[in-house]
Design a protein around this nucleic acid. Structure first.
Length: 350
DNA sequence: AAGCATTACAACCGCGTCCCG
DNA sequence: CCGGGACGCGGTTGTAATGCT
């Protein structure tokens, strides 16, 4: 059965033969495709126009880049997917020479599995529930907990739990993060920072939702429980991650208001045990803000080519973002590399 | 070596959107 | 405004290649 556009014709389906490819290429290179529904007849093919279009776009187009995806391309896919979700055509626009079909297949066959293996939900880029924090001995959890609590106000952390080398107070809504993170380093060759965040400069511990790009899968169903799912990862797992980021999903990374030292407090002295009501209100408030921001950012993002994407991402860093400070002061603290629990206080002090 | 399972990728299908008469 | 054709997109299926027992 052919498509409606060519239902009158007897069309072939399935894999294309080299002869068919040749006919299609010859026709399009000499005449252009014009109206696709007319192509099969003009090219002498027993195919439906839609099939010809697909074959050309996904396989025969001369500008296609063949071969496996590079690590950089993979990072871009993950990053953009986190923002846009399964919008393969949009994602593919950021990867010259790659098609939406190719990106989609690569995602389903490879990236998805990698993320799952790292304990990340490929749809939300959040930690899977099976990877909730269950112990407190890992540095990743402690590091992220520190860096998150500064902009999540009523939720706070404590490092005073003596039984654990780095205790995480799970009241913190860990999903609360700062936009694109990580950004592939290769996209930012002129920048001295290897992991970028937006530099929303919150100066107090009151709730401040920073810019955040999230895909629809992540957006709407957050609740107090799921917010806690961002959690631990063993240092061994962390060691396997690319150096550009602690968390390839980009979620739950840093609170720059703490890291960049723009605030007047360390956060640690602002311990406040939230009431249940406060927690609920907090979560609702954040969800609302995030939803609005996601919509705005998504609108901005759509239609951007890769160059504009870089500009957009960089543009979201505030002007007082101190790259040199970040690189010189934080890199040694392990904030951009593998993290050990021992780095915790040191990083904070930075 | 054979059979089965898994993987990777090409291709199809259906639906939504756009455009034009 | 409406209807139909063309196109684009995302989900799904089919199939060849590869790996494993």
């Amino acid at each position: 059965m052919g498509h409606h556009c060519c239902s009158k014709q007897k069309v072939k389906r399935g894999l294309w033969s080299p002869e068919e490819d040749e006919k299609l290429v010859r026709h399009i290179t000499t005449h252009g495709h014009g109206c696709w529904s007319a192509v099969p007849k003009l090219a002498g093919l027993q195919r439906c126009g839609k099939s010809c279009r697909l074959r050309w776009i996904n396989y025969l187009r001369p500008d296609l880049k063949r071969g496996s995806f590079t690590e950089q391309e993979e990072r871009v896919i993950i990053d953009v997917h986190r923002i846009l979700g399964n919008r393969w055509a949009q994602i593919a626009k950021h990867l010259p020479g790659r098609t939406d079909n190719e990106v989609k297949n690569f995602w389903n066959s490879c990236i998805k599995k990698k993320l799952i293996a790292q304990g990340l939900d490929p749809n939300t880029h959040n930690l899977l529930s099976s990877h909730k924090i269950n112990g407190h001995s890992n540095g990743f959890a402690s590091k992220t907990s520190h860096n998150h609590n500064r902009n999540t106000s009523v939720f706070s952390i404590s490092t005073s739990h003596s039984n654990n080398d780095a205790y995480v107070d799970m009241k913190t809504p860990f999903h609360h993060t700062n936009s694109i993170n990580p950004i592939p380093t290769s996209l930012y060759e002129n920048s001295t920072i290897t992991t970028a965040t937006t530099a929303a400069t919150t100066t107090t511990t009151t709730t401040t939702t920073t810019s955040e790009y999230q895909n629809p899968n992540f957006a709407s169903n957050q609740n107090a429980h799921s917010l806690m799912e961002f959690g631990s990862r063993s240092s061994m797992e962390m060691a396997t991650l690319p150096s550009y980021s602690l968390n390839p999903s980009g979620f739950g990374m840093f609170d720059e208001s703490c890291m960049w030292g723009s605030g007047t407090t360390t956060g640690l002295e602002h311990f406040h045990e939230p009431t249940r009501h406060e927690m609920i209100m907090q979560v609702q408030h954040e969800n609302q803000q995030q939803q609005q921001q996601r919509e705005q950012e998504k609108a901005k993002f759509e239609g951007q080519n890769s160059t504009n994407m870089e500009n957009l991402l960089i543009g979201n860093m505030s002007s007082n973002f101190d790259f040199e400070f970040v690189e010189s002061a934080l890199m040694p603290c392990g904030l951009y590399g593998n993290v050990s629990p021992m780095d915790d206080q040191l990083a904070w002090d930075c």
